[in-house]
Nucleic acid binder design. Structure first.
Length: 194
DNA sequence: CTTTGGATCGTCT
DNA sequence: GACGATCCAAAGG
C-alpha cells in the first residue's frame, strides 16, 4: 500500500528536458483542493531550441525559466490565456516542460465554476490555457517553487507511474523547429492493450 | 467527428 | 508594429 505522495526529485529535473517531460506524465498538479493529473506535455530547450522562450536569453517575461529546476514558469499567451511550465535544467542551462493537458482528479466543482464554457468534464482542462483556468493558476504564481510542500501550486507524485510508451509527436502552435518530436501524451486507454 | 476564422493584448524588435 | 508554446463558436460530414 502506497499512500504517501512523493515529491519529484529536484536532481531528476536536471536531466535532458526530453526525459524530464516524459517523466512528468501522470504526475499531479495540486492547487488547493483542485488536483489534475498531467496527461500531455511539451519539452522546450534553451539557446539550442529556437522554439523556446529561453532561446534569446532572459527577459522580464521569461526570467523564471532561468531559475532553479522545479520553479513554475507562467506566461500569458495570445494576450488572454495563462500557460504553465515546470522549469528544468541546471541553473545556467534553462529548459522547461509546458503542461498541455491534465485530467481532472479532484475539485471538479471549482473547476466547472472557473471554466463555465466547458461543456463536458473532458473539456475542463484539455489545453494549456484551459488547465490554468481550471486549476486557478495565474501570473501571480509565476516563479513559485513547485517542490515546496507549502507552496500554493505543487507538483507531486502518487503511485501512478509515467507510461513506458507515451504517444510522441511534434510540438504544436509554433512556427520554427516544427519537426522536433517533443510532445508527449499518455496513451488513450485502449492503446495500452497490445 | 473535423475544419475554419476571429478575438485580444503583452512582449520584444 | 508584428506576432504569438490558444480558445471558442459556427458550420459542415
Amino acid at each position: 500500500m502506497e499512500s504517501s505522495l512523493r515529491v519529484p526529485d529536484r536532481a531528476g529535473l536536471e536531466c535532458p528536458v526530453e526525459d524530464v517531460a516524459r517523466g512528468l506524465l501522470n504526475a499531479l498538479l495540486v492547487v488547493g483542493g483542485r488536483i489534475g493529473r498531467i496527461v500531455e506535455v511539451e519539452a522546450y530547450g534553451g539557446a539550442d531550441d529556437p522554439a523556446s522562450h529561453a532561446h534569446r536569453g532572459p527577459t522580464p517575461r521569461n526570467r523564471s525559466m532561468f531559475a532553479s529546476p522545479g520553479t513554475l514558469y507562467v506566461y500569458r499567451s495570445y494576450g488572454l490565456h495563462w500557460c504553465a511550465n515546470v522549469v528544468s535544467g541546471a541553473v545556467g542551462s534553462p529548459s522547461a516542460v509546458l503542461v498541455r493537458a491534465v485530467a481532472p482528479v479532484a475539485g471538479l466543482e471549482s473547476m466547472r465554476r472557473d471554466r463555465p464554457r466547458a461543456r463536458t468534464d473532458r473539456d475542463l482542462a484539455n489545453g494549456p490555457g484551459k488547465l490554468c483556468a481550471a486549476l486557478g493558476i495565474t501570473g501571480s504564481d509565476d516563479g513559485a517553487d513547485l517542490l515546496d510542500p507549502s507552496a500554493r501550486v505543487r507538483l507531486v507524485r502518487d503511485d501512478v507511474l509515467a507510461p513506458c510508451d507515451p504517444v510522441v509527436s511534434p510540438r504544436v502552435g509554433i512556427s520554427v523547429e516544427v519537426e522536433r518530436p517533443w510532445r508527449f501524451r499518455v496513451p488513450p486507454p485502449h492503446a495500452g492493450a497490445r
